[in-house]
């Protein structure tokens, strides 16, 4: 990773736009999605899911194990309120210097999907960064409509490109 950073080698050949992914991946379409975004020179540089469960390890104190473990559990991304979630998303927006957020409204994970519209509004207000919502499911392919999703992604990228001109 450090070597790639030093060489300036990104995950896609010509990265112009950096996006943050929210929610569990649409596992059955990960390749299609990454190629779709890459065709717009857009890269999904970070996501809220990877560290959703381990991100609260820092609250664990071995000298006060039971109390701190309870705290760590309750501080997991899905167990906090929308305002707190938005704070974490804003921190990621700043850290990874993103141009837009792609939110997967996931039918098989309602606790993760609830509040996405509010988080999108908070990010838009605080950082003037747009969000795209894709309705799908992490495993059920029947909940995925390719041409609808393609139109939304194309329109979202046209919007980001126009705003950066």
């Amino acid at each position: 990773m450090n070597d790639r950073v030093a060489r300036g080698a990104g995950a896609i050949p010509d990265e112009k736009y950096r996006l943050l992914w929210d929610n569990i991946p649409i596992w059955h379409r990960t390749r299609w999605l990454s190629e779709k975004f890459a065709s717009h020179n857009a890269c999904l540089v970070a996501d809220t899911y990877t560290s959703a469960w381990c991100g609260s390890m820092k609250y664990i104190d071995e000298n006060n194990f039971f109390d701190s473990m309870a705290e760590a559990y309750t501080r997991i991304y899905l167990n906090i309120g929308v305002d707190e979630m938005a704070c974490m998303v804003l921190a990621m927006v700043d850290k990874y210097n993103v141009d837009g957020i792609v939110m997967h409204s996931n039918r098989s994970c309602k606790p993760y999907s609830l509040g996405q519209y509010d988080i999108a509004k908070i990010v838009e207000k605080e950082r003037r960064i747009p969000s795209l919502i894709l309705e799908a499911d992490m495993v059920d392919e029947r909940s995925f409509s390719e041409s609808q999703v393609a139109t939304r992604i194309d329109a979202f990228m046209e919007m980001i490109k126009a705003s950066k001109q």
Binding site: P130, I133, M159, A162
Partner: peptide, 22 residues
């Protein structure tokens, strides 16, 4: 086959949009 709401700025650029689901 679909319905959408599009918000534009004073130059006609898209600021935000929503589409019906599939």
């Amino acid at each position: 086959q679909d319905s959408k709401v599009i918000v534009i700025d004073e130059k006609g650029k898209v600021k935000n949009f929503a589409m019906n689901d599939k």
